[in-house]
Design a protein around this nucleic acid. Structure first.
Length: 875
RNA sequence: GGGCGCGUAGCUCAGUGGGAGAGCGCUCGCCUCACACGCGAGAGGUCGCAGGUUCGAAACCCGCCGCGCCCACCA
């Protein structure tokens, strides 16, 4: 036996780096851009944040995508190319925040060092830490095209972003506007609606009395008293008879003294509080809309730093919003204007980026109208040219797309794609162009570029084609665009997936992928969200170190489903056990082939040569698992694909088949000619090679390693393996083996019940003509029976008899057996049989059943009754 | 407020019209010449509750209870 197969366990830590090295140096992951996309297979990875490190979501999606990529690479025709498009995302806010934090620790800030120096620092930072997550993907075994790594801020990519911006601007989709936006005081930038997270909170709802000019009062309710300083109206519902005569009059804003018109607007709910509403257009999205309808002034009192502005006077200026709230309440109280306060539960917007509370502010920003782009993107999903799997996400997508709103695309950051917009300092003309202009076209005046950068998702939306070199008409684009599938979690369905579909159709005329697979979100084992801050995170790299990459990949695929799932360490251990089992099965078979002096067979191809029923059976079972695995992978049912492999290897291959053939391998059976041994060795080698190839997409490392031991010349990963072929099922063999397995299991159970020591060979006669002689021998051996050829005659009676399917085993000696122990077992078995018989009888005497059930079902029940009764009789 | 989904063995989950399953855990027995990260044999479930459809329901329909997620501008 080879030296490296003397260990009894598969050692991932020793094997994985070696195999990784072979894969990476093979060039296999880096296909030449040949052929066209209809024959080739490609996946664009969701580009991880350049600052990030591998978390469970990456590990799961990496396992999924790699299983798909490896599966298709192996099953495709020799001329087809398979490519997993790789890259990282510059992740504007996240990356900038990290570098700003580093600067703060050094006692400086981006403002202090300036834009240019700051960007240099970010690039340095990226050089230093940016490659980490890519290295982590390698450890997972992900067969990405590492030779073509992209970055969403690369020069080429930047060019694509500019072209898209300019084109959309010229179409009139992109425009600049003063509008109320979600202002994130944490990152000092506007953010999009999708980056806002609502949290339920309990605040105080204050009721505040405003005087009316000419006498009388109104009472408004608010959870944000500080914003009253920016009130520019009081509103009531036009149908509210109570207040009809108030409309057109004026209220006096307390503390400020401003005159506020009382207006009528449908937005106001008469049944909420008093039905009188303060209107603050500059600090509330709804009030903003009311303000537009009634041409109200927009007075801002909160600045971009989240503090009260100078206009609020020395009493409030500079206070944080929360401080201002207290101060305003106190001031109002002194005037006796607060007439009620009650706890109030409502949702409060927070920034998904910085975690800080959103301040709705009026701000000059760039927006993108989405409704025109949405039309073909809706159609693509409706007509299934983009298929969303599982289907129930279709509606979610469609509903969002049908109600799509303008997207605020500008960010007040420095790290990102700076808008290709140039303002003339002389004539105020605005130039939008992908090529940096020299001066103003109209007046030759000096130009200043827009300070803002684009939302990171704007550039990510171009990923599948920009990563392949668009707008240039590259060979990569021809070969790999559109991609086949996009695999992702559902949290970025709108943020990213929907926008990719829109941009892909707009700029390439085709959706960027044919299918979208939405995978599970993995939660902590206790059901909470996996997060570092909660301390619930599990690091996939720790898991890989402890159990091996194959185990983690198997485990993640096994636990994945169409819902969220809890992380299940047991499934990872199952994967580890599978790798180990394969390792030992190969070790065992190679050892025997070696002992038989047949090691030479490893050097060439082998065809299976079934000689016995069990040979035909295992080859038939292999057909099942091959077809099932292919079907499951193609349907994104990774869990069943993984478990199917596990069950085949453990139960069918190892527990049964290898146990069946052991005597033949040990030269003990009747099949002991040279030719028989060669045939069996060929069958075993074929079986193992097929099994390795089949399991490779799920557990690539161990299968690649063992492939070499089994004589594989090149890489298993490079093998063309037509997985999905027609099923060649041997029903006769399957029926015979099912019967034999049932018989052995029954006999072992009986042994256990009579307290037979495992080492005891019990003399017995198998009285079952339906079984082939060789099969009777095998049954006897696996049940530890010493076969006695002559049946017990009249002069010799059996000590016990055990019913097996289609026969009886007669035990000829009670030595070492406690036959009383079998009684309870028999009693239990007959109770069970009797209750089943009763149930089937009940069915068959039910007139409704007889008259309405399909005849086939009735026949089956009748046959079952007969079988049960004969089994009971035999007991 | 709207939508989606879940509730099956102690745990994590599969099963979606005709015999309740897997892994782990548990019990008993085995270092049986590949594997003790192993092998053999077992125990364990009113399939959330209540109704309905059906000859037949864990599965299909209605309601309820519990849990999760997404979307949504009512101070």
């Amino acid at each position: 036996m080879r030296d490296d197969l003397t260990a009894t366990r598969f050692e991932p830590a020793e094997v994985e780096p070696r195999i990784s090295e072979r894969w990476l140096s093979s060039g296999l992951w880096h296909p030449q851009p040949e052929g066209d996309a209809s024959e080739n297979y490609s996946i664009a990875i969701p580009p991880p944040n350049v600052t990030g490190s591998l978390h469970m979501g990456h590990a799961l999606n990496g396992s999924i995508q790699d299983a798909l990529i490896r599966y298709h690479r192996m099953k495709s025709s020799p001329s087809a190319r398979t490519k997993w498009i790789l890259g990282t995302d510059h992740a504007g806010i996240a990356t900038q925040a990290k570098v700003e934090q580093a600067l703060a620790e050094q006692g400086t800030s981006r403002q202090a060092i300036g834009r240019e120096a700051f960007l240099e620092r970010v690039w340095e930072w990226r050089e230093h830490y940016g490659g980490r997550i890519i290295e982590q993907f390698k450890r997972l075994g992900a067969s990405c095209d590492y030779a073509e790594e992209r970055f969403t801020l690369d020069e080429d990519y930047h060019r694509a972003v500019l072209e898209v911006f300019v084109a959309l601007y010229r179409k009139g989709y992109i425009y600049r506007d003063r509008y109320i936006v979600n202002w994130d005081p944490g990152s000092r930038s506007a953010i999009s609606d999708l980056e806002v997270e609502e949290r339920e909170e309990t605040d105080t709802l204050y009721s505040i009395v405003y005087d009316l000019q000419g006498g009388g009062t109104v009472t408004i309710a608010t959870v944000r008293p500080e914003t009253m300083l920016a009130d520019t109206a009081v509103a009531v519902n036009p149908d509210d008879e109570r207040y009809r005569e108030l409309v057109g009059r004026s209220a006096i804003l307390p503390l400020v003294g401003r005159r506020l018109p009382v207006i009528a607007d449908e937005y106001v709910k008469s049944d909420f509080a008093t039905g009188q509403l303060k209107v603050t257009p500059a600090h509330d999205p709804n009030d903003f809309e009311i303000g537009i309808r009634h041409e109200l002034d927009q007075i801002s009192v909160i600045g971009e730093d989240g503090r009260m502005t100078a206009e609020t006077g020395e009493r409030f200026a500079g206070l944080t919003v929360m401080q201002a709230r207290e101060a305003v309440v106190q001031a109002l109280e002194q005037e006796g204007r607060i007439v009620a306060r009650e706890p109030y539960r409502h949702s409060v917007p927070y920034s998904h980026r910085s975690g800080e509370r959103i301040e709705p502010l009026i701000s000059l920003q760039w927006f993108m109208r989405m409704d025109e782009l949405a039309v073909p993107a809706i159609a693509a999903v409706n007509d299934r040219s983009v298929r969303i799997v599982p289907e129930n996400h279709r509606r979610v997508y469609l509903e969002w797309m049908e109600n799509i709103r303008p997207w605020c695309i500008s960010r007040q950051l420095w790290w990102g794609h700076r808008l290709p917009v140039y303002y003339c300092q002389t004539c105020e003309r605005v130039h939008v162009t992908a090529d940096t202009p020299e001066g103003c076209e109209a007046c030759g005046g000096e130009l200043r570029q827009e300070e803002d950068v684009l939302d990171t998702w704007f550039s990510s939306a171009l990923w599948p084609f920009a990563a392949l070199g668009w707008p240039a008409d590259t060979a990569q684009l021809k070969a790999f665009y559109p991609t086949n599938v996009l695999s992702t979690a559902r949290d970025i369905l709108f943020l990213w997936v929907a926008r990719m579909i829109m941009m892909g159709i707009e700029f390439t005329g085709r959706p960027p992928f044919a299918e979208v697979y939405i995978h599970s979100v993995i939660q902590a084992p206790d059901g909470r969200r996996m997060s570092k801050s909660l301390g619930t995170g599990i690091d996939p790299l720790d898991e890989i170190a402890a159990h091996g990459a194959d185990a983690v990949r198997f485990g993640l695929l096994a636990m994945s489903s169409t819902q969220d799932v809890r992380y299940s360490p047991e499934k990872v251990r199952q994967g580890q056990a599978l790798a180990n089992k394969l390792f030992n099965a190969v070790r065992f078979v190679l050892g025997r082939i070696d002992e038989l002096g047949l090691s030479g067979m490893l050097d060439g191809p082998v065809d299976p040569q079934p000689r016995t029923v069990e040979d035909r059976w295992i080859l038939s079972r292999l057909q099942h698992v091959k077809a099932d695995t292919a079907e499951r992978i193609e349907q994104y049912d990774f869990s069943h694909a993984a478990f199917g492999l596990y069950d085949f290897v453990f139960a069918e291959l190892c527990d049964w088949y290898l146990e069946f053939v052991k005597p033949r391998l040990a030269n003990e059976g009747p099949m002991d000619s040279e030719e028989d041994r060669r045939a069996l060795s060929a069958t075993l080698l074929h079986l193992l090679r097929e099994t390795l190839a089949l399991a490779h997409p799920v557990i690539p490392f161990v299968t690649e390693e063992l492939w070499t031991h089994l004589g594989g010349q090149g890489l298993l990963a490079a093998e063309r393996y037509p997985i999905a072929e027609e099923r060649l099922i041997d029903q006769t063999a399957e029926a015979q083996l099912t019967q034999a397995i049932d018989a052995i299991t029954l006999l072992r159970g009986w042994r256990d019940s009579v307290g037979a020591r495992p080492g005891l060979w019990i003399p017995a006669h198998i009285n079952a003509e339906g079984y082939e002689p060789a099969m009777r021998t095998a049954i006897a051996r696996l049940a530890r029976l010493e076969l006695v050829d002559d049946a017990p005659g009249p002069q010799r009676t059996a000590a016990a008899s055990i019913t097996i399917p289609d026969g009886v085993v007669e035990v000829l000696s009670e030595e070492g057996l406690d036959l009383d122990g079998a009684r309870e077992r028999v009693a239990r078995a007959s109770r069970k049989l009797q209750s089943e018989i009763d149930r089937v009888k009940g069915k068959l005497t039910n007139q409704g059943f007889i008259q309405k059930a399909p005849p086939a079902v009735i026949t089956a029940e009748e046959a079952k009754l007969e079988r049960l009764q004969s089994e009971l009789g035999a007991l």
